Simulated assay, not measured.
Amino acid sequence: MRIAVLLPCYNEELTIGKVIADFQRELPDATIYVYDNNSKDKTAQIAREAGAVVRREIRQGKGNVVRSMFRDIDADVYVMADGDDTYPAEFVHNLMQPVIDDEADMVIGDRHSDGSYGSENKRPFHNFGNHFVKGLINRLFRSGLRDIMTGYRVFNRRFAKTMPVKSEGFEIETEMTLHALDKRFRIVEIPIAYRDRPPGSESKLNTFSDGIRVLKTVFWIFKDYKPLAFFSIIALVLFILGLLVGIPVITEFFASGRIAKMPSAILAVGLMVLATNSLTCGFILDTIVRNHRDEYELRQSDYHG
């Protein structure tokens, strides 16, 4: 069985050597790949000296790195972690087992169940953002996942080779979770411990800009994967606005037989037409998405990776 450990890295010279050594200890037969994303320090040199296969991804962003990893690397089991030593390598066996036993297509390292993420992570807005996005996705897809945005994951070959990576940055974890939920991949969550970065190692995350990018990803996924619900909400808003504008006009007409508020009448009709068009778009796009999902399932059944 070919096992590939994937480590996206950007300026991780303080920790990458230890991370590689930890995974070499736990998985001595695995090939460890470090994709250097334009680091300005000695990350690539240290990783190469530690025995990893080092490659470079010139397009900045973790999503671009993951896209290249999935396309370039052939393996039976893919282990993805970060190069900042926040995910203990000793949990990798627990994460790999469901994939090896063919019980899961993607295994998620759940940081929240044991409470370590909330206590170790010193960025309270990240904790809030994680819970907000988790609640939104769980409600949207009627799932019960506990950790949507963890970077510690294990995939089988089927998932890695058939996932279209669209994100460029740190929203890639959210995209992988959304893709797995929408395409009904088997997901298993395994509790893991989380530790914050060691002193001197700086996070590349930006609370507000990365949070906005994640929310934009959720918004577009909502529109693309759940178009009937998305456009129905828009139609409902437009319908309510049309009623608010149109009720006084209708009341006036029944009382006097005349319409004096002609601009309001035109606006109300326009809002109702837009609401109808939005709902119609939702039904049409929902049919297209269902057909696309059926075609994807057929391609999956023909996949023998």
Score class of each variant (00 low, 15 high):
8 P>E: 03
84 D>A: 12
11 N>W: 06
173 E>A: 11
141 F>T: 05
237 V>Q: 04
252 E>A: 12
251 T>H: 08
49 E>N: 11
6 L>E: 02
171 E>I: 09
10 Y>K: 12
193 A>P: 00
176 M>D: 02
246 G>N: 12
60 Q>D: 07
209 S>L: 05
103 E>R: 15
18 K>Y: 04
302 D>W: 07
204 K>A: 06
258 R>V: 06
194 Y>N: 00
277 N>L: 13
176 M>G: 04
121 N>R: 15
262 M>T: 13
261 K>S: 14
255 A>L: 11
173 E>I: 02
46 I>N: 08
278 S>G: 08
282 G>C: 05
232 S>K: 13
269 V>E: 07
202 E>V: 13
243 L>R: 06
178 L>Y: 02
38 N>M: 00
226 K>V: 02
235 A>P: 03
198 P>S: 12
270 G>K: 07
100 I>F: 09
77 V>R: 12
188 V>T: 06
206 N>K: 14
217 T>C: 10
137 I>R: 14
53 V>K: 15
115 G>F: 06
302 D>Y: 11
52 A>M: 05
223 K>R: 15
17 G>M: 04
74 D>G: 07
249 V>A: 01
131 H>I: 04
155 F>W: 11
209 S>D: 12
24 Q>P: 00
78 Y>V: 08
125 F>T: 09
59 R>H: 09
165 V>E: 00
237 V>Y: 08
304 H>C: 09
112 H>W: 15
76 D>N: 13
201 S>Q: 11
167 S>I: 03
113 S>P: 00
199 P>Y: 13
190 I>D: 12
305 G>W: 10
277 N>V: 03
254 F>E: 00
